[in-house]
């Protein structure tokens, strides 16, 4: 927890406000719940809620803009046990198919059924309404090893 909090203040200070990449960590002012948002080199995000133990998986804004119009999303089956790095689904645009990898280990608890009928949600709201699935983390420490918003932005800029 402490390191998460430290990370919070550090990234808050160093992050200029930019619409394209939301802040790395958002603390929601209800009780002690903390949502930690991290990024992967595979252009995914995981938002870990330490109260529920669930991590919400999305693709990044950058990924959706590179893919173009998403027309089909394949999601994992509920209760699937996944290891970090496993392929758990795919996002397809007209021009390309792109695999989704589990950014964290755990069990798939929810999938965004809306994407079956409205794959375009991934373009409109990739990091919010277009979430892919929620994973019950088996090893929350994995989240901290992922990239902060700043680190993710740095690899795009480089």
């Amino acid at each position: 927890m402490f390191s998460v909090l430290r990370q919070t203040s550090r990234s808050r200070l160093s992050l200029p406000r930019r619409a394209a990449v939301p802040a790395g960590i958002q603390s929601i002012p209800i009780f002690r719940t903390l949502i930690t948002k991290r990024f992967t080199a595979d252009h995914e995000t995981v938002s870990y809620d330490d109260k529920t133990g669930l991590g919400t998986i999305t693709i990044t804004e950058y990924a959706q803009s590179s893919l173009g119009d998403v027309v089909f999303v394949e999601l994992p089956a509920l209760e699937t046990k996944v290891e970090q790095g496993d392929q758990i689904g795919a996002v397809e645009s007209v021009k390309a198919a792109s695999d989704i990898y589990a950014p964290v280990s755990g069990i798939v608890k929810e999938v965004n059924e809306k994407l079956n009928d409205q794959p375009g949600l991934l373009n409109k709201s990739p990091e919010e309404d277009g979430w892919l699935c929620k994973i019950q983390l088996s090893n929350p420490a994995e989240v901290e090893d992922l990239m902060t918003a700043k680190a993710y932005r740095d690899i795009q800029d480089s």
């Binding site: 992967t40 080199a41 595979d42 252009h43 390309a96 198919a97 792109s98 990898y101």
Partner: peptide, 10 residues
């Protein structure tokens, strides 16, 4: 996400 596996165009 990066493994754009099957692309018909360069």
């Amino acid at each position: 996400m990066t493994a754009l596996r099957t692309l018909s165009l360069a």
